[in-house]
């Protein structure tokens, strides 16, 4: 894979420097068998430094993960070597099964089947709280 250009796939750009591995992990990109490139600390005129992830295949990215980890990132859809769409990310209102509640007294620790859901309670400080027990989502 040439990490400078991909033919069909997506490029997640403008990731806050140092966050790419968290996104890789939460998107479970290790499960993909296509080429995936992580570029850390690339220079950026806007951000100083940034991370980039390139995925060389059609992939339906969970935008809520990006919004949670790095809300300023962008998703570029590449078809036949040309960018056909650029998506700007927003802070998601809810996180569903992205992070787990760490409160040992929370019902999510014993009920196996329920979804782990956090809601955005403070957009300025980007604070999410568990809908079941109000515990803050784990620090990034």
């Amino acid at each position: 894979m040439n990490i400078d250009s991909i033919h069909n796939g997506i490029v997640i750009d403008h990731i806050d420097a140092g966050r790419a591995m968290q996104i890789y992990s939460l998107l479970h990109l290790e499960r993909l068998d296509c080429p995936v490139a992580i570029i850390k600390n690339a220079s950026s005129s806007k951000m100083g430094r940034k991370d980039i992830i390139k995925i060389d295949a059609d992939y339906n990215v969970n935008l809520d993960v990006l919004g949670y980890i790095s809300p300023n990132s962008t998703v570029n859809i590449i078809k036949n070597g040309v960018r056909v769409e650029k998506k700007h990310i927003q802070l998601p209102e809810r996180l569903v099964d992205i992070v787990l509640c760490k409160n040992p007294r929370c019902i999510t620790t014993t009920e196996q089947e329920i979804h782990h859901i956090f809601k955005l309670t403070d957009p300025e400080k980007r604070i999410y709280r568990c809908i079941y027990c109000d515990t803050k989502a784990p620090e990034l």
Partner: peptide, 10 residues
């Protein structure tokens, strides 16, 4: 009544 937080919401 339940000892786990959020059980009634579930």
């Amino acid at each position: 009544r339940h000892p786990k937080e959020g059980a009634p919401l579930v």
